[in-house]
Amino acid sequence: MSQPEIDPDLAFIREAVHAMPIARTLGVEVTALRRGHAELRTPIADAMTFRPGQLQAAAVFAAGDCAAVAAAGTLLEPGSWAATIDGTIKLVAPASGTGLRAVGRVVDAGRLLTTCAAEVYAVDGDAERLCATWLGTARRMTPRLV
């Protein structure tokens, strides 16, 4: 297995994704991070399927969401984070196989809002097939001073 392609300056994004309960539940692993780009892998677990080997749409949405918003987060300074404020998904093929690979990217970055997208691929061995596209908006969040 190859080493993750994580920009060391962006390791805080990987930690933020891995700290999210939904990401832990789904088994999300961040495999690549660079400015404006994030890649994640998610295994297809029986508990997340609606029929044997076919992932439920909510889990596919979550994979796309995590990848796209992680990509948005790569443009932020440490101490800030990106939070989803809206998202939509288009399912184009069954999410079946052994896992998903979600590739997130920034479409347009603003000071407060970032439009981001992800392509989600169903993985089975060496074969990949596009199963969904995700488009949404993330908001820059900062700690509040009291």
Rank of each mutant, 00 (worst) to 15 (best):
P43M: 11
G87M: 06
V103E: 10
L76T: 14
V60D: 02
R129N: 11
T115I: 08
P4L: 05
V28D: 08
F61M: 09
I89E: 00
G104S: 03
A132P: 03
A138H: 15
R111K: 11
V146C: 03
L100V: 11
A58F: 03
A19T: 15
V120M: 06
E39V: 00
A38Q: 13
T84V: 14
D9Y: 04
S80E: 10
G53Y: 04
F12Y: 05
A117F: 00
G104I: 00
V146W: 00
R111N: 06
H18R: 09
G53Q: 00
A117P: 00
L10R: 05
T31H: 10
S80K: 09
A11N: 14
T49L: 02
A138Y: 14
T115A: 07
Q3N: 15
M20E: 10
A23M: 06
L135C: 01
G73E: 12
A83M: 05
A19H: 07
D7W: 08
R51K: 03
R34C: 15
I13V: 03
T137H: 09
V123N: 05
L55M: 04
G27D: 07
L10M: 06
L10A: 14
I85Y: 07
W81F: 01
V92L: 01
E128S: 11
M141T: 04
A47H: 02
D108P: 15
A57M: 09
T88P: 14
H37Q: 05
A67K: 08
L112H: 15
T74Q: 04
L26W: 08
G87K: 03
T25M: 10
P94Y: 12
L100W: 14
L40G: 00
R34E: 15
V28H: 01
A127D: 13
I44R: 15
I44T: 08
A58L: 06
V30H: 14
L26F: 05
T133L: 03
F61G: 14
D9G: 13
R35I: 12
F50G: 13
A11E: 07
T25D: 11
R34H: 10
G110V: 09
V92R: 06
A118L: 13
E15K: 12
D7Y: 06
V120W: 06
D86W: 02
P4C: 12
A93L: 08
A32W: 03
P94K: 04
S96N: 15
